[in-house]
Each structure stands twice: as C-alpha cells, then as structure tokens.
Amino acid sequence: MFEGYEELNTQDVERMQEVIRTLLSQTFLPERKYDKKYGRMMPDRMYDFCDRHLEFLTEYFAVAGIKLSQDTELGIIYLEGTDGIGEKLPKLATIYLLLLKLIYDEKMAAVSSSVNVITTFGELNGKAGEFRLIKGPSSMTEIKKAFAILKKYQMVEFLDVFEEQLENTRIMIYPCINLVLMREDVNGLLGSFSDEVKSDEVAGQENLEWNSEEALSENDMTDEESDLEPEEMNVDEEGETEDGTDESGI
C-alpha cells in the first residue's frame, strides 16, 4: 500500500479514485475551467485535489509506467507516456486541433494577459478556408463529434449554445493545447493536409475532364450516325433493302 493512502478518509478515497479515472480518460487537468453557471473561469476541484496529493499520485502512476507531470506556468497536471490509452482523432477533429493551436499562438503573441484564448467558430472556419483544408461543408454531426473529442481532452470549451448563431459561437481554447502540439508540428501538418486537398482537387478535375471527353466522343458518334442518308445505312426511307424487297423478304 502507498504511504499516506490509509490516512485518507472515505470521501478522499472516492475523490482519489475519481481523479485517477479522470486523468486516464482525458489526460489533462486544467487548474481553471469555464463555468457556464457563473459565466467565468473557476478553480477546478479535481486539479486542486490532485495538486495536494501529487506525490502519492506520481508514485501510483509510475507503477504503470506513466509519468504524472505538472506545468505550474500553464496551470495543468497531465499524464505522459500513455500511448495506447487515448483514441485516434477523426480527420476533422485533427484539422480543428491544428487550427485552434494556430489561433492560440497568434492571440498569445498579441500580449495576452491570460493563458486561455477565446475565438469563434467563424474565425476557425476562416482559417480552414485560408489553408484550404476542408474540401466542402461538414455536416453538423461531424462537427459536433469533432468538438466532443476536443472538449473531452480539455482542449476547448463552448461559451455559447452551439446550434444558435453558429458562426458567432465563442470557443475558449485551454492551454492544454500547448502540450499536445508544437508550432513546428502545426506548420508541417497543415502543409500536408493542404497538399492532400489540392491533390484531391487535381484528381477530381482530371476525372471531370476525362468524363467530359468520353461524353463528347459519344455525342460525336451519335451526330455522325444521325447525318447518314438512308442509302448509306443500306435501308431506304420506307424500310426496303437495296434489292427492292422489304426486310421481311416479301
């Protein structure tokens, strides 16, 4: 048994179990989160509990080969070395994550006094168009699924109801995004996604031209056949053959 565990009361044991499950599920615990009830940032109780029992939790996760780290500047407690525990991000969620990191860095560079950044869905879509990362409009189901994953891992929080005034919906970007991607990684991945979309567009254009040529060729053949005189087709206007008999042989 780990030192200090037996000294915990029943309520603290339950909180400890909750914190462990939460970290394994979402990897990150931000120090402060947006509370919709109060409309402002509030201290996170699980972060506070984890901070007070950091030594015990560090030893606990170390047994499983997982490192528990704390970034006091950003206000984040998080797990490292959890390969295989997380889930694979859908393509749209990955694109949003890259663009949100880009927006986060740009706004932080503008001398932000907070580690949290606020953007809008319209601004995010504008970035997607700027880098030509999305070929066409995504369905609401795809968009919600992408953001549900980003919210689960403490990357973002919606400040408004998502269905209403979609383009103006405010999105808070948590500093956890800094621990997922470096700026250099973002630029490289954005380039690869952009090249992929361009390749798809070129392939689509080539297919369109090829299909157009086929259709034109078929139309040309039809026009040539329609220009033939009856005698050139070995049938006169009344359906008789060249020897004067009709097709029935009479």
Rank of each mutant, 00 (worst) to 15 (best):
Q165H: 10
I134S: 03
E59C: 10
I66P: 03
L74E: 10
S113K: 10
E224D: 14
N219E: 15
L29K: 05
G4M: 00
E229D: 15
E231P: 11
D12Y: 07
E59I: 05
K67Y: 02
S112D: 12
D236L: 09
K152D: 09
P43M: 08
M41L: 14
M42I: 11
E130Y: 02
D227A: 12
E209F: 15
V197L: 04
M41P: 01
F49E: 00
L92Y: 07
V235Q: 03
Q154P: 00
T58D: 01
G239V: 10
S192T: 08
M172L: 13
G204F: 07
S138F: 08
I177W: 03
L228W: 14
G129P: 05
L150M: 14
I95A: 02
L8Q: 01
L8T: 05
L24T: 06
E218N: 10
S212V: 10
I76A: 06
A110P: 05
D35G: 06
L190C: 01
G65D: 07
P30D: 03
P230R: 04
M140W: 09
L100R: 00
D44N: 10
L166N: 12
E242Q: 13
G239H: 12
L8M: 13
L97H: 09
Y153K: 07
A62C: 07
K88N: 10
S113G: 08
D44A: 05
L208T: 15
L89H: 03
F162C: 08
I85Q: 12
E196V: 00
C50L: 07
L100V: 03
L181C: 03
M221S: 07
M42F: 08
E142P: 06
Q17G: 13
D243I: 11
E130Q: 04
S199N: 10
E73V: 15
M233R: 14
Y60E: 00
K67M: 06
K151D: 13
P230Y: 05
I134F: 01
Q11M: 09
D48I: 04
S112T: 10
F56S: 03
E213F: 09
Y5G: 01
G126R: 08
K67L: 06
R40M: 12
P90Y: 00
V111F: 13
K151M: 11
N211D: 15
T94I: 09
G188F: 10
T72G: 03
V13F: 09
I171V: 08
M108R: 14
M155N: 11
E80T: 05
G81L: 13
Y153A: 01
N9W: 02
Q205T: 15
S217R: 15
F28C: 05
K135Q: 12
M172T: 06
L29T: 01
M221L: 11
T94M: 06
E18G: 03
T120L: 07
L190W: 00
V63M: 02
K145L: 07
T82F: 14
F147H: 06
G239A: 11
N178K: 11
T245C: 11
R170W: 13
F28A: 09
E238D: 15
K145Q: 07
L102C: 01
E206A: 14
N116A: 05
D246L: 07
Y60K: 01
L150I: 10
D71W: 04
F147K: 06
M108A: 12
K144R: 12
